[in-house]
Design a protein around this nucleic acid. Structure first.
Lengths: 321, 321
DNA sequence: TATTTTATGTCAAGCGGTTGACATATGAAA
DNA sequence: TTTCATATGTCAACCGCTTGACATAAAATA
């Protein structure tokens, strides 16, 4: 049997209430008894049961985090920062990889509610999940519009798109294409595309499915089809990497014949592909802001700041442009 | 106030016990009442409180996962698989990024115990954490020897090292160095180094600290110091990437003048650096095996399989060798 | 000396759900 | 008609901890 508060009380020769008082720093306790209790705790190797505590307090200090997948460098970094910040505030993260699937996301959100999480941070792809309407459950979305009441945190996507495309233009590109993933409609990321379409005369956007190797195949097809292409604005660094790979295969010289710019600028990108020009998202700031907003909602049961936050991005110029 | 089981009972016109029976599929329930209850649940938008349930059942279905950081591609992928598998088995993951710091890891493990996790999967760097001795707490370690009683799952590191170094030798390298991170002593990863030292005549191993940009600096220093180097066996793909970057800066042609082989072979590596020759770890298998072992320990309260598992690795030959 | 503050104890209710024991009332099978 | 499997209800205890109410007693202060 596990050691419980009662056992500690017995060993320390005090009442359970006193032990609880020591544990929670409440009421009057003398240094002496405090010590007695602490010794008993050590002796018995006692750990308070936070499940019982949560039940009573109606506070779990759990935050649900729903991402498409932590294996993506962007979400991996984001998760790291979010977890670190939450941890420093005494919150724990329940990790959910939705793979962008509606059903999974639904299942995860129900699970989180059943586990009485104090709040949820969502950066996945789906709308219309009723669970998110659960009364007064604090939710913050990252880069997605989930519902009118759910605040959105992200980077300045329009500016990012503009910086990227303008940079390509400045470097002399005349035939720029844009490559992005599917399903980015309800997303502030659509503004990257908007910026591209606003800046370029004959905008051509390709939507690529996320099916692994096929990315490379699709891009090869595109580049073969449109040999006049001299600039690519990829919607993330992985896409940009695929473009570079295809260019190498097709003996297209980068940046001389083709310039490529990515998006995200994670540490991973910068380690693996330091030569890639890209738009760096302020990942740590995004994490910080979303957690702050969430805490705000948890503590005040309503949002005090703005509904949408767009944090500044940064153009990192390297060798691919 | 939140809806509770009692409210559902009232609305459905049945007793709380009956609701609980429906919820848990126990005892005799007619289709009729089942329906009545389910309707009430929907009507009230009721979610059972899993905290209360956990308290009673003494089972939380939580698994703690301690990694150095999910932002590292290897651990990111590993976390993804582990979470996915656990999720399919009805378990939830509490994510902990220890940054490899002893104090953090200690704090996390205490937290996990207090939250009554059913088990822990650890892939972090520290020994001597008493918490791991918590009575009968199922723990599985990935690639680290934590204690004689804690099973270890990992890949066949000696074979990986051998494959890598032998490949460099086969490609004609005469002066091969090995670069790895610090603190890999209590780790099966030390066998990679062992293999290197067994295969090469004058083995030279550099230990690099994980301080970001400094990796590149250190490697530059090494390559300048030892211009005769024609082969590098890096302990992971990030190190290998840094080597490639330095080679580019120093105008050393890869693979003609210098061959580089990495380690891990994550999807991220393969996307960002498809040209890198590397040893691919069976990440999904590692995830699967560790979860299986953990479940085994949870269900049988003891380990039935072998204490150490080394899964086969694979040499991925590409353009850097 | 009287009053207040400090220090501790006992007791019981409650957090929300589960479970076993026991009672009762059907309809069906023996 | 008796017996049994089915279907529900009531009740109370319990999971481990917290908390408010109340009691008591010693030490500190007025």
């Amino acid at each position: 049997m596990k050691v419980k508060l009662e056992d500690v009380a017995k060993v320390a020769g005090v009442s359970p209430t006193t032990v609880s008082r020591v544990l929670n720093n409440r009421g009057y306790i003398s240094e002496q008894t405090k010590e007695k209790v602490q010794n008993a705790i050590k002796e018995l190797n006692y750990y308070p049961n936070d499940v019982a505590r949560s039940l009573f307090k109606k506070r779990t200090n759990f935050i649900g985090l729903i991402v498409p997948t932590v294996s993506n460098p962007f979400f991996g970094e984001l998760s790291l920062y979010i977890e670190n910040i939450c941890s420093s505030l005494g919150y724990k993260i329940i990790l959910c990889n939705s793979s962008g699937q509606l059903e999974k996301e639904k299942a995860y959100s129900t699970m989180l509610i059943r586990h009485q999480v104090d709040g949820i941070i969502v950066c996945s792809y789906n709308r219309g999940i009723d669970t998110y309407k659960y009364p007064k459950l604090p939710i913050v979305a990252i880069d997605h519009y989930l519902a009118p009441t759910i605040p959105v945190v992200g980077s300045d996507n329009y500016m990012g798109g503009k910086l990227a495309v303008q940079h390509l233009i400045d470097r002399g590109c005349r035939s720029i294409i844009h490559i992005n993933g599917p399903l980015e409609l309800e997303t502030p990321a659509q503004y990257r595309r908007k910026a591209y379409e606003d800046l370029v005369e004959n905008p051509i956007t390709y939507e690529i499915q996320f099916d692994d190797e096929d990315i490379v195949l699709s891009i090869r097809k595109i580049l073969v089809e449109r040999p006049e292409t001299d600039g690519i604005f990829a919607s993330d660094d992985l896409m940009a990497a695929a473009c570079l790979q295809v260019a190498r295969e097709l003996n297209i010289r980068v940046p001389e014949q083709l310039k490529v710019i990515g998006y995200d600028g994670t540490k991973t990108t910068r380690s693996f592909l330091p030569q890639l020009t890209t738009i760096k998202q302020p990942i740590e700031e995004i994490a910080k802001t979303s957690v702050e907003k969430l805490m705000d909602m948890i503590d005040n049961s309503e949002l005090t700041g703005p509904y949408e936050t767009a944090l500044p991005v940064q153009l990192l110029i390297n060798e691919t442009t």
